[in-house]
Nucleic acid binder design. Structure first.
Lengths: 331, 331
DNA sequence: GGGTGGACTGCAATCCTTTGCAGTGCCCGT
DNA sequence: ACGGGCACTGCAAAGGATTGCAGTCCACCC
């Protein structure tokens, strides 16, 4: 059906080898020949068969992306970034969604590894050991976390938390509650740490209320405990949790930001639509996806750089102040 | 590196052909031979090389999915459904996001068509002619709309709108505003039609306020016009628009549902987090993705059914009543 | 006992492209 | 005038799996 390299060769009056070279190593063929080949390619609408090319080069021109949940806007943005960047490099992306099941990750990556050159893995919960095992199968770039020995792109959570705390302290808050996400989550750990450091540096006080699901429901569940801490401000694991807090606080008649200021993390689309619009630390999600792709592709092109390992991208968050934070209430 | 079919053949003491058959046409090989092959496969961890197989069978074991915007929760859910179902069939999914640029669709499908067996296309804006042209390149299943001669899965918008109107009329509303999405959108047209029919059947009155972007901003922009119609209820193109309406109405001090009832369409995650929680027509988004995959795979397995054309899936929406609708105000 | 058919299995071609190696022809230097 | 080198091009193998065709072997029938 589709034109093959032989058809092009025949039409251009050259051998298939020459066609192949004219396309991939233009410097190696005479300009006039190259033009004839180009014309034939054009006329026939020829495009190299990727399977055949992959068979011989060992490369598929495809990368995989594994995320916990596509329906989560955070991962959707990430996916968008990955996809856009990959297309820019003429690389296709297989996406796979683990449905928030960390156990499925390893199997998925293994299955994927046969069909792709490498994978971008977003695995907030897995341990470093599990990740190391997964990385045996194929070239892996982590996103949204780091792990020793593995390349990845992550956010500077400490810095983001510092910005949030500085904002709250400037508003007069002294006691700040912290609603963590899943205990095993890399981000929870780093955000918690960043918060402790920031609070200490600014002579405020942190009131952690434990670990909750990183969802709207998680936020609803945490709200009453937040109130019980007596804090005048709260930092939530992410925006979904913050919005859950907002909902429960509202139904309890607690005013935000009058009685309690709320800060989220991520800046998903929903945040600016929340009522009150949510103050949050914006994470450049698409950017993370883009950088992960660049990192992965660079490793693929030059395996040395992979060996040298631990290539990292680090991204900074930016505090977006909206209406959910305000001056601390006077006692 | 990885084991090939010849390695397996050697270990099992048979020819590569027999291994191939043992795996894909088990009935053709002797049970004991098959067992030996199976053991060898197991021991070597053999998996057929997809590129090599694709080269000869002409099938890639991959389908494409083209959506306007992955970051839109509606399409994210759809993607999730497609992806899950495809994995179930051991088929990989390339996803591509057109960034809401209908002009990019054709090119994207064409590029994709070289690498996939077929594509699931979500193209709300393209004309029937454009779609027909696109479908030349490869096997296409439409999702979220229909077009003559092309298979697709769509929602019964008329029915969904009828449910919404029946609900509103039962609450005493007689004049219902309608905020349409992009004029060229298939869904806008069908929802508008369904609304007109339903309103007529129930002796109410429709007040269309025109076409807006299918976004939060679109809803904000439409709100004042909705108010100006004097309607006591409004149906929005989708939930995003409805949430935008909610925001603007709130800032104008118009009570929902006290002064005005609001109904959306889609039931995205955000809707139940809105304030007030949004009454909406829930569309089975993942289900649509799943069915589209089934349809596509069936057409691929049996091209006849493709020729017979116009295979369709139809899905029904379900009205989810939350807090944004209430009794019509007494004049 | 020879012939026929059935049940398996193997051979070899094929899918399409890339790439190491071996030309071919020409130019230039000596 | 001849050898060497350069620039370019072609040959052929390779990559891994599938499949039409042909072969082997055995059992069974007449």
């Amino acid at each position: 059906m589709a034109a093959t390299i032989r058809d092009v060769a025949r039409l251009a009056g050259v051998s298939p080898s020459t066609v192949s070279r004219a396309l991939s190593l233009p410097g190696m063929v005479n300009a006039t020949t190259r033009a004839r080949v180009a014309a034939a390619v054009e006329q026939l609408g020829y495009e190299p068969n990727r399977a055949a090319r992959g068979l011989i080069t060992g490369r598929t021109g495809t990368i995989g992306l594994v995320v916990p949940d596509l329906a989560n806007p955070f991962f959707a943005s990430l996916t968008k970034g990955v996809q856009a960047r990959a297309r820019h490099h003429d690389v296709a992306v297989f996406v796979a969604d683990t449905d928030e099941d960390p156990a499925a990750e390893a199997g998925l990556v293994r299955a994927l590894s046969k069909q792709v050159d490498g994978v971008v893995l977003c695995s907030p919960r897995a341990s470093d050991e599990e990740l190391a095992a997964i990385a045996q199968d194929t070239t892996v770039v982590l996103v949204n976390r780091t792990a020793v020995g593995l390349p990845g792109v992550a956010y500077d959570n400490e810095d983001g938390m510092r910005q949030a705390v500085a904002h709250l302290v400037a508003l007069g808050h002294r006691r700040i509650a912290w609603v963590g996400g899943p205990a095993t989550s890399w981000s929870t750990q780093h955000r918690g740490l960043g918060l402790r450091n920031a609070v200490e540096a600014l002579r405020a006080e942190l009131a952690p209320v434990g670990n909750f699901a990183p969802t709207y429901e998680g936020g609803m569940a945490a709200a009453d405990q937040v109130v019980a801490t007596g804090a005048t401000a709260v930092v939530a694991y992410n925006d979904l949790v913050a919005i859950g807090l907002l909902a429960r606080l509202h139904s309890r008649g607690i005013s935000v930001p009058g009685d309690l200021s709320v800060v989220g993390v991520d800046d998903i689309a929903m945040s600016r639509m929340a009522r009150p619009a949510l103050t949050t630390v914006r994470l450049p999600k698409q950017e993370a996806g883009r950088i992960a792709v660049e990192l992965l592709l660079a490793m693929l092109d030059d395996p040395e750089s992979a060996a040298e390992g631990s290539k990292h991208g680090e991204l900074h968050g930016e505090l977006i102040v909206r209406d959910s934070t305000g001056p601390a209430p006077q006692k």
